[in-house]
Write a protein that binds this DNA or RNA. Structure first.
Length: 311
DNA sequence: AATGCTACCAACCGCAAACGA
DNA sequence: TTCGTTTGCGGTTGGTAGCAT
């Protein structure tokens, strides 16, 4: 027999909160501050359990909460963060300070999951109003091993790269930057670390807490993320260097490239398996904050939170 | 107008981590 | 170190509004 639920006590009210209850709770918290939730029902006379009081405050009454009407930018951030972090709603919410984890979770379950499903099945065509979201769908899903066919190259990203005013970089650039940040400094110097010249790619999250990186090394165009390509070699995360490591032969683009393509354009495809860095030593996702801020660096907040000027 | 279906979201539940004695 | 309590988190549920038939 486990611990009885806190809300099973006799006389404890359940269900939607009334405005009167809200006022009582807010008044109490204004006076005493949030916390010590166990005392809240006792001191206020509310017939609610402490848990319910805390939830009501954090998800609804707390100041600074923005409700409803998720902007395309917010949608994009949620999609992207979900792809990186999984269903860590609290962590995702920390990057959207005006939104609660519950709100984000609800929005994901009711809107975004469907959008992604549609997108993956190829049934949906990105509309102008949805372009920002689709941008993130591309970066977050197309390169993670999900079979998305050729949509990545032919649809949203084509439009993106056509417009230099885009507030976001292309998928490949974004992911490359994300990865750089994820890997964290010190950055490996390719000159001194010949085995590390392919340390850029795309990140996805898997159930095994591994991050799979797939990239194409192209001597003409530089490193590029490519979706849906074959894996050619495996690289691992080097904890000591805080970067990717691989054997030199598998990184030898000329050798591999000629084997693979047999033409002048030498390309090597890598699949990079990277162990997730330890969180306690590596502040989680601080790079993402920087990245998100950087993405909007040339734009007013209102502009970024609304539609991109390309629309 | 009545009924059924779907989407949405506030709130609940259970688990686990954090905290403190 | 142990154990009880508190807090935080993520999954799920249930009520309700809106729409279709």
């Amino acid at each position: 027999m486990g611990r009885p639920p806190c809300c099973d006590k006799v006389g404890i009210k359940k269900g939607p909160w009334t405005p009167e209850e809200d006022i009582i709770l807010v008044s109490y918290i204004q006076e005493h501050g949030p916390g010590n939730w166990r005392l809240v029902p006792t001191n206020t006379g509310l017939l609610r359990c402490s848990k319910s009081c805390r939830l009501r405050w954090t998800n609804y009454l707390r100041p600074g909460i923005k409700r409803g009407n998720f902007t395309p930018h917010e949608e994009g951030m949620i999609i992207h963060l979900q792809a990186l972090l999984g269903n860590k709603w609290a962590a995702i919410a920390s990057y959207l300070p005006q939104r609660t984890d519950n709100d984000i979770k609800n929005y994901w379950n009711t809107h975004l999951k469907k959008k992604i499903k549609k997108f993956q099945s190829g049934l949906d065509t990105p509309l102008a109003s949805d372009l920002t979201t689709y941008r993130f769908l591309s970066t977050s899903y197309n390169e993670r091993g999900v079979d998305t066919g050729s949509r990545h190259d032919s649809s949203s990203d084509v439009k993106l790269t056509e417009n230099s005013n885009s507030i976001y970089a292309s998928s490949a650039e974004n992911i490359s930057r994300l990865l750089k940040g994820w890997m964290s400094s010190p950055k490996i110097d390719p000159q001194n670390n010949p085995t590390a010249k392919c340390c850029e790619g795309t990140a996805t999250t898997t159930a095994e807490s591994l991050h799979y990186y797939r990239l194409k090394v192209d001597q003409q165009e530089g490193n590029k993320v490519i979706p849906g390509d074959e894996y050619e070699s495996i690289l691992s995360f080097d904890q000591n260097r805080n970067g990717l490591a691989c054997d030199k032969s598998s990184c030898d683009s000329s050798q591999k490239g000629s084997e693979m393509s047999g033409n002048d354009e030498e390309k090597v495809k890598f699949d990079v398996h990277v162990q997730k860095p330890k969180m306690e030593n590596n502040p989680p996702l601080s790079f993402l904050e920087n990245w998100l801020l950087d993405e909007s660096a040339n734009h007013e907040v209102e502009e970024v939170m609304g539609l991109s000027p390309i629309f």
